Simulated scan of single mutants.
Amino acid sequence: MLRHRFQPGRLVAGVFLIVAGVVYAGDAGGLWETPWFVLIPLVVGGLCTAGAVGVVARAADRRR
């Protein structure tokens, strides 16, 4: 496998999208009741957090 740079923003985005998928799957499977508007702030907040982490990681990488 080719080596590549670690990108923590993508990791954070992936974690938030996995959590959103688990919440949706739990609601679809009948394990719990989730209102429809819960997933929108979860995904948008996760993408904003991932963007902020990406900017901080890029700034830290440029300083090296």
Rank of each mutant, 00 (worst) to 15 (best):
G9P: 02
G54S: 12
V53R: 09
V55L: 14
L39E: 03
L42C: 04
G29N: 15
C48S: 04
R5E: 10
A13Y: 03
V55R: 10
A52F: 06
V15R: 01
A60V: 11
V19E: 06
P8I: 03
V23N: 08
A13K: 07
I18H: 01
R64P: 02
A20R: 10
V23H: 05
L17R: 02
R3D: 13
M1F: 08
E33C: 01
R5M: 05
V55Y: 13
A13V: 11
A13M: 08
V22R: 02
I40K: 01
Y24P: 00
L11Y: 01
G30E: 09
W32S: 05
A28V: 15
H4R: 15
A20P: 09
L39C: 02
L31N: 10
V44F: 12
L39D: 02
G21E: 10
F37P: 03
F37S: 11
G46K: 11
G46L: 08
L11C: 04
G9F: 00
P8D: 04
F6M: 08
A28Q: 15
L31A: 14
V15C: 11
H4Y: 09
L17K: 00
T49V: 14
R3K: 15
D61K: 13
V22K: 00
W36R: 11
V53T: 11
W36K: 09
A25N: 05
W32G: 03
R58T: 04
L42K: 07
L11W: 05
P41Y: 05
R58N: 06
D27N: 15
L31E: 15
G54F: 01
V12L: 13
A60N: 09
A59K: 12
A52N: 00
L2C: 01
A59H: 08
R64G: 14
L17C: 12
A60Q: 12
M1P: 10
R62N: 10
C48A: 14
D27S: 14
I18K: 00
V56N: 01
L47F: 14
G54D: 08
F16R: 00
V56Y: 13
P8T: 09
M1L: 07
T49F: 09
A50L: 04
A57W: 12
G54A: 05
I40E: 02
G54P: 02
M1I: 05
D27C: 02
L11Q: 03
R63N: 06
V38C: 07
P8V: 04
I40V: 13
V44N: 00
L2D: 13
L47V: 13
A59D: 07
V55M: 03
F16L: 00
G45A: 12
A60Y: 11
G21N: 09
V22F: 14
V38I: 12
A20H: 10
V56G: 00
G29E: 14
R62F: 06
G9K: 02
V22W: 08
H4I: 12
A28I: 11
L31D: 14
W36T: 07
H4K: 15
C48R: 03
R5P: 01
V55Q: 04
M1N: 09
R10L: 11
V15T: 12
A60H: 11
E33Y: 08
A50K: 02
G14V: 07
G54N: 04
P41F: 06
V43P: 09
A50G: 08
V23I: 13
G29T: 13
A50Y: 03
W36P: 05
F6L: 15
H4L: 11
G9Y: 01
V55K: 05
L17A: 14
V56I: 14
G46C: 10
